[in-house]
């Protein structure tokens, strides 16, 4: 109910809680909050893609399991290692930036970019091999169909679709980090931290792509 004291002029209701206006309720700046929201949104894009993949796989009569432990899985494990390490170097970059040590921060970002680029290149090589085997987005190689009769052509579609979109994210991340590193003088530590958020998110997505797409399709020995 509304009460009106005719006599008093009270202080505005300020400072009762950070949620009452005039403050940052999460104690997080706009840009960081914005990046978190973007990450929420983007994780749903990947979520939907992975669900679509699982849907297709469950409903198929046969699904190819083409990755031999050696070399495919070992190869993709190395890719995973690259991404994980790049996350570590990114953390280092952020903590250097926090200490206002922009030179070190830039070095660590370059290290991150190195690992990220390594990931992309290894991934490209792998794609090249698969395409060389005859795997396409719309069809499976002849030999695979002999091993797994009736296997769904959606294998190629989901594989290239999901890893392609992920690679696109890594690539955008490389550009983003590149800009931050080159013009680091103009950015403050929060900007570095935010680019780090994005980069870790890309890493996080791979933590789901790798087991679902690779490890569940290991060739039976």
């Amino acid at each position: 109910m509304v009460e009106v004291g005719a006599h008093a002029t009270a202080e505005p209701l300020v400072g009762a809680s950070d949620w009452d206006g005039g403050a940052l309720p999460y104690r997080v700046g706009h840009k960081k909050l914005g990046m978190w929201l973007f990450i929420m949104s983007d994780s749903l894009t990947f979520g939907a893609l992975l669900i679509a993949y699982s849907y297709a796989r469950i409903s198929s009569v046969a699904w190819p399991r083409p990755f031999p432990f050696f070399p495919s899985i070992v190869f993709s494990s190395v890719m995973t290692l690259c991404l994980l390490s790049s996350s570590l170097t990114m953390v280092m970059a952020v903590s250097a930036a926090k200490k206002r040590d922009k030179k070190r921060a830039r070095k660590w970002i370059f290290a991150t970019m190195f690992f990220g680029a390594a990931f992309v290149i290894l991934h490209m090589i792998e794609w090249g091999h698969l395409i060389g085997d005859g795997l396409m987005a719309f069809e499976l190689p002849e030999e695979w169909l002999k091993i797994w009769p009736g296997a769904s052509p959606l294998f190629g579609a989901t594989f290239f679709g999901i890893t392609g979109l992920h690679m696109f994210h890594v690539f955008s991340g490389l550009c983003y980090l590149g800009i931050i590193a080159l013009f680091i003088k103009r950015f403050d530590d929060e900007d570095v931290e935010i680019s780090g958020l994005y980069w870790h998110f890309v890493d996080l997505v791979w933590m789901f792509v790798f087991p679902l797409i690779y490890l569940l399709s290991i060739k039976p020995s």
Partner: peptide
Amino acid sequence: IKAALIMAYFMHLRFERMSL
């Protein structure tokens, strides 16, 4: 678990406010 680790530590979520 891995995702939680990345979010909590690498992405600093553990050091943010609970409300976030």
